[in-house]
Design a protein around this nucleic acid. Structure first.
Lengths: 198, 198
DNA sequence: CATTATTTAGAACCAGGTACTAATATGTAG
DNA sequence: CTACATATTAGTACCTGGTTCTAAATAATG
């Protein structure tokens, strides 16, 4: 593999998983750690900690100034363990081309993401959900999902979250989610070497 | 200042600026760095780097969405109006980076797609669903979803479809879907229509 | 007073690097 | 083939922002 190829690979790997350490990269690219570091320098890629810091600062800034710009729901308001609001605009990618109706799992994904995001816990996972698609969502419509935490049941238990999604004034989706909030079931075992990701 | 007061102050400072180091805290609170660290432990506040990591991962996970053109599940067997099987392998894109657990809406999307595909109608849309995530699915696992049509209720009515998703022998997800089948008109939200992939 | 809680100190160690020097491999042009 | 350049590997010292542990000094309290 040429240097150019390897550097392309490196860019690709880091784009796919910004949390990768140099040591992991040596395993994936089969070169020494010094080569990895030279490559990173040439490509202007900062070290892992700096990458994480930048992401954290970026999201922190965004939370403070509210605008966001991504796909499965821009979270515009978030009160942990209480409520949250996200906005998701249906684009061409999200609909059936023959009728312009949004595919259900996008609408679900917005609600699911919000239900999980609103829970203030290290690991929150959807346990079950009861959902209803009230009416179809059309291309170009803006879905506003509003989540309300209904019960919390202590740390490490389940939380209940209701999500209602509207287009304008109209209800288009409703869901009742049971979200697991995993307690500090930490797998830290003292020497947390980065194998926890793969 | 009492210990309690100081710890309240500490919580307040970190809430206001999560990027503060222990060293900075010693300057602000006028106690030794060991006291700061004891306080953090008692309050369960992780070190700066861990705080940044969590923020970075949180925002990173949130931005991840369903790739627009990605097909959720390969349908390997299909008997229209009767049953179907699809396979979907969990890749890096589908999991939370922190723990390698699949995000719920991907598992849902596979089941939803299959439930709709198995209905032999021009347009089939999910009307509602009752779902349960039985256990978490990990990175690299292969989800095999099996759909069974339970009732059909004639053309233009509702169909009931049960979907069970397995990893190996283990049940990981189950869902009961109500799917609208309308020959020409639609009046519900969000499903996949059948024959969505070739 | 003895006991307990609180605070401080110091050393060893860790991850995940940077910065720098130096040696070795591999090409490539003349 | 030689000479030079590029690419790769090795190794050391050092850095930050901590953890973990032991131990001592300093309150606070019954």
């Amino acid at each position: 593999m040429s240097k150019k190829e390897r550097q392309q690979q490196l860019l690709h790997i880091i784009a796919g998983n910004p949390f990768v350490t140099d040591r992991e990269l040596t395993r994936q690219l089969k070169v020494s750690i010094q080569t990895i570091r030279l490559d990173r320098m040439e490509l202007g890629i900062p070290e892992l900690r700096e990458r994480m810091k930048q992401m954290a600062e970026h999201s922190y800034d965004q939370v403070r100034s509210l605008p966001a710009d991504e796909v499965i729901g821009d979270i515009v308001d978030l009160q942990l363990d209480k409520s949250g609001i996200s906005i998701f605009e249906i684009r061409e990618d999200h609909v059936f081309s023959r009728n312009g109706i949004a595919r259900g799992h996008y609408v679900f994904a917005q609600a699911n993401s919000l239900a999980v995001a609103v829970i203030n816990d290290e690991i929150a996972l959807t346990a079950s959900a009861d959902i209803r698609f009230v009416r179809t969502v059309q291309l170009g419509e803006k879905c506003i999902a509003k989540a309300q935490v209904r019960s919390l049941a202590g740390r490490g238990g389940k939380a209940e979250v209701d999500v209602f999604t509207y287009v304008g004034e109209e209800l288009v989706f409703q869901g009742h989610f049971i979200v697991y909030r995993s307690a500090n079931d930490e797998h830290s075992e003292g020497g947390n070497h980065s194998a926890d990701r793969h």
